[in-house]
Design a protein around this nucleic acid. Structure first.
Lengths: 206, 206
DNA sequence: CGGCAATCTTGTCGTTGTCAAGTTGGAGTT
DNA sequence: AACTCCAACTTGACAACGACAAGATTGCCG
């Protein structure tokens, strides 16, 4: 593990085993961090361990991320960016929800860090803008529900939809739905769920 | 802060300033831990800091909780117990959801730890039984929806309800709903939400 | 009154995050 | 082609932490 030996980008430069400049240390640290977090959560993250994996000295990561919080903030910002691009091209609200759940499954580390505010640098510019972008994408999906004639007001519908998707995704990542949904495809289960709840079909009939 | 000087339970024993035995160190550590977690999250938790707050030596907490994971596991177990008693006396599914949200607001530290599995000792007996108890309480509320005639099967309805409540609670604690719901009472908002979605009133009308 | 087990202390080790100061190398300028 | 400068990385140090081991204290039960 650790350093790759494959042919690399020009930035990787020159010759041999241990170049002084890593080439793309920032990306390497990020990738390693995502692995660790996906496996054992953010609390298992150690800058020194990441440095070891990348084959650099223990203080190298600090140059790219300032500190632990900086690294996690960068991950969250990247996550919101990815989420925004995933949701922006949704065909409707239900599809946006499905994409939300899919994002959480495909990027569990990002997802977890994004929604753990005490790990992040409040007010970081990149984070704030990326989050706003994702927020806009979600709002767009909600607004497209129906231009007029909503049963409940748009803001409430947004909260409802977000809660449903976020709760499903969170419980899924925490393995709390392993029992209830078994080996069924989670995204398909969610689609069914969302369809039933938002189409107005009653869950019970007197 | 730190040690209290008020009259205490008999266990507090004898005379003066610094009794060798604390009296109820276990509870004191737990309470301090909940304060820290509610304020700055589980990653800000330090056993040595808790010991300092309780006025005991740095290794004292270990005797009650074995290690950091043990402390967090105890918190999670306590949380599932509290959740179970809160949900067990719900009048119906909607009320159970409201109680779920209320629990998250009144016990944010418990809630956060309960659903962060990588911080917990998997297979701990107290935790497992408490979790099962809470699970039963929730299942009971779902089963009481309607004995028969559900629009979707019971298991799905349970997942939907849990997702909605859990998502709402999680987003709430992360201050992600501060904008959308403003200063409105969160539990009331959730009640409205749940009523609309589960009563079968459509969110949109052609 | 004696001992025993629970509770808490003291001391230590390896690891971590963070800061400060130094080193390397490549890209651009002249 | 030599020079310079700056970003990228290293080395070294320090305080704080979790964990463990071994010892001290105390209340309790016989």
């Amino acid at each position: 593990m650790g350093r790759t030996l494959l042919p690399m980008s020009p930035a990787q430069q020159s010759s041999a085993r241990r170049p002084y400049h890593h080439g793309d240390l920032r990306r390497a640290i990020l990738t390693a961090a995502l692995d660790v977090i996906a496996a054992d959560g953010p609390s298992a993250l150690s800058l020194r361990d990441l440095a070891r994996r990348a084959g650099v000295s223990h203080a190298a990561p600090a140059h790219h991320f300032k500190d632990r919080t900086g690294l996690l903030t960068a991950i969250a910002a990247e996550g919101f960016g990815l989420l925004a691009t995933a949701v922006i091209e949704a065909s409707d609200l239900r599809d946006a929800g499905v994409r939300y759940v899919r994002f959480a499954r495909e990027h569990p580390a990002h997802f977890q860090v994004m929604f753990t505010p005490e790990l992040l640098r409040t007010g970081d510019l990149e984070l704030t803008t990326a989050r706003a972008l994702a927020g806009d994408a979600l709002s767009g999906a909600v607004a497209a529900l129906r231009p007029e004639g909503l049963g409940i007001d748009t803001r409430l519908a947004g909260v409802a939809a977000w809660s449903l998707a976020h709760g499903f995704a969170t419980l899924l990542l925490g393995h709390n739905l392993d029992g209830p949904i078994g080996d069924k495809d989670p995204e398909e289960v969610f689609r069914t769920l969302a369809t039933t709840l938002f189409r107005g079909e009653p869950t019970s009939r007197p």
